[in-house]
Nucleic acid binder design. Structure first.
Lengths: 205, 205
DNA sequence: GTCTATAAAAGGATAGAC
DNA sequence: GTCTATCCTTTTATAGAC
């Protein structure tokens, strides 16, 4: 079997189990059992459990954040200096949405965990600190009535609601509630909600 | 030592470690090591690891949700039939805030995890399903331009941003950003953000 | 690159003394 | 109610054959 085939199989399976059972609760053995491999394969390809965890997240985050930057730069060139908040929210969230659109639900749920599992949040997000800084600057430009701390917190709120969207667990009502919005509709809800949140306190024009 | 003393000591320690390391990653042995007890104590008081996990969450959620209901009922009596959205958001979030205000940061971080760790979300939230239903009805009344699904999702977004607030990890920038809002200011930010989000799409008056 | 086999440690749970 | 001692399972990690 090809190197990258096995590697991807491990990453796919780990991702699915992390999303389903939690990261700390998922053993390497559970992963290889479901992947039809053996423990040694993981150590060969990743070196340690911790390195595997980071790779699972980075594999998804890298292309998403590249997309985010590309869209931000496009906005800066075409709509500068006054980029509408709604466009910024879309530039930040749409790459997530389009990337995970055709992924199984469990895989989407992984992203929600990124911001709450303490051993993951720090090492992963440090890699993307610069991107967040750039968005913070853009949001601050677009919402000059806010101070930098407010912008940072509101971005965090946006990230929180994004996690909820991705988790698909719909935590307010994880029971048996029939009708669910279609993914596209749900996404528009998220955009609308967070654009309104970020716009809160704006001076009337 | 008194029964409830030991029980609380276990709950306190477990809570702290769950918040710090994640739930699945925290062993019973780690808990009792830090609490100065032994594994048998946990099984005596809680029966199993799983039961302990549920108790850790329910100990906090029970008083919070009682407060929520009390405040909702007060609003229904004093401001019915048209309860402002802002009051509903406060009725839902303020009990969380006031309850955790004087708790150490790690303990607050636990609530953030409630909505993402899959083995916890379901069993815990099922107990409070009725309360969420009541709030959903109230929000639907206060925002009649939304349909029930929209209300449910927006409540979930609110819960997501609340989790971010509680986590204290400020995931957008977990690096070394100097100034932080005071807790009260942060709370007002959350209220404002989510009131605006829930109000999105409201007809102009 | 992938496997089996195995080492060494840590996990949850229980029995029985006090 | 709390402890020690113990059972059995599972874990991460490594060594060495193929």
């Amino acid at each position: 079997m090809n190197t990258s085939d096995t590697k991807n199989k491990i990453l796919d399976t780990a991702e699915r189990l992390f999303a389903r059972q939690g990261i700390g609760a998922t053993s390497l053995r559970a992963i290889v059992r479901e992947a039809g491999l053996n423990v040694a394969a993981i150590h060969y390809h990743f070196g340690s459990r911790e390195a595997l965890v980071l790779e699972v997240f980075n594999r998804r985050l890298k292309p998403i954040n590249q997309q985010r930057v590309a869209r931000l730069e496009e906005l800066e060139q075409t709509r500068s200096p006054a980029i509408p908040l709604n466009d910024l929210v879309r530039a930040f969230l749409e790459p997530v949405f389009s990337y995970f659109y055709d992924q199984p639900p469990q895989v989407r749920g992984l992203m929600a965990r990124l911001h709450t599992e303490p051993d993951v949040t720090r090492p992963v997000l440090q890699q993307y600190h610069e991107i967040l800084q750039r968005f913070q600057g853009a949001f601050l430009n677009a919402a000059p009535w806010l101070n930098p701390e407010q912008v940072r917190y509101r971005m965090s709120f946006m990230i929180g609601s994004m996690g909820i969207m991705l988790s698909g667990r719909h935590p307010a009502f994880c029971g048996k509630n029939g009708a669910r919005l279609k993914p596209e509709q749900l996404f528009e809800e998220v955009i609308q909600y967070n654009t309104a949140g970020l716009s809160a306190g704006a001076p009337k024009k």
